[in-house]
Design a protein around this nucleic acid. Structure first.
Lengths: 156, 156
DNA sequence: GAAGGATATTTGCATTTGCATTTAATTCTG
DNA sequence: CAGAATTAAATGCAAATGCAAATATCCTTC
């Protein structure tokens, strides 16, 4: 075996349904599609919805941090924020010590909107885990946390 | 509690990093971005790359089946197939018994291309699981399989 | 066996996306 | 401390996306 060739089983040998990234893309594809369909009725896109969700938990992040949390391109996020701001759901605020930077906050209206969204998101998440014991769910989340540590680019 | 109100912990109480869909989106966002950057060099988009991957394992699926496997909108897939066909990597073939339907096959060139891609995909997947014991990985995949069963729309 | 409804795929078109660039401000270096 | 390099966010623009409609075929039912 040459020095730059790692050995990997072929995909055919593993099988699609044993290849974790395939399963995760399938699952999140459906989950995100379900959420997106529900949000479209309220005039929210995926970036906008995720922004509200993250802001309900993280207080006044920088836009680039928000981009990491929401897993949305910074330029796309910038435009989503324009819309949310116009709709009065978020507010941009110049950072105190760095005037290049902008911090983002949920308005009361934004928080109220997210409160109406959350039950749908929670219900979809619950559906994912239907019939899976708590113990197994906890182990699953613990593995996910390790995986995020393995792959993430930012310290966030 | 009213009959249509399920009780769900608030996101702030769970915490982002304990909410499985958040973690899964973060992880797959990075994983897909890594793959996409590598594939861009070879002129492949995500839909095209996934098409090759699935076809390496599934023989001659219908286009609508391929859309499910690849988690790509059917119209987007149709255009990705146009490109792959032009590049000589796949071939469309009318279904024998239903002339509306089209089956898709990898050409030899397509298979060869995928062989060069696979090591990158496998390496990225391996990176995800670095430091995670085999036993834990197996349990994780088993949980994913249950989740896919819970959420999937198609019998595929 | 003709008409109406369902299904498979493609295509038109408006929107969304993401890359690359720009603008503005900060930090580093000699 | 001036100039170069870096960083944060917004924006221009071409390409990708997704919805809805169009096309073609198949299935059902009367």
């Amino acid at each position: 075996m040459s020095e730059d060739t790692e050995t990997h089983a072929r995909l055919g040998e593993i099988g699609l349904t044993n290849f974790a990234p395939y399963l995760m893309n399938r699952i999140m594809g459906r989950y995100n599609a379900m959420i997106r369909e529900e949000m479209a009725d309220v005039g929210l896109t995926t970036p906008k919805m995720r922004t509200l969700a993250v802001l309900s938990v993280v207080e006044g992040p920088l836009i680039r941090e928000l981009a990491v949390y929401t897993v949305v391109e910074q330029s796309t996020l910038s435009r989503a924020l324009d819309q949310l701001q116009t709709e009065g759901l978020i507010r941009r605020e110049a950072d105190a010590s760095d005037s290049r930077a902008v911090r983002v906050f949920l308005t009361d209206a934004g928080r109220a909107t997210f409160e109406t969204l959350w039950p749908h998101m929670a219900a979809s998440a619950a559906r994912l885990f239907k019939g899976i014991p708590d113990e197994e769910q906890r182990a699953f989340v613990a593995t996910l946390q390790k995986m995020l540590t393995n792959i993430r680019k930012h310290e966030i």
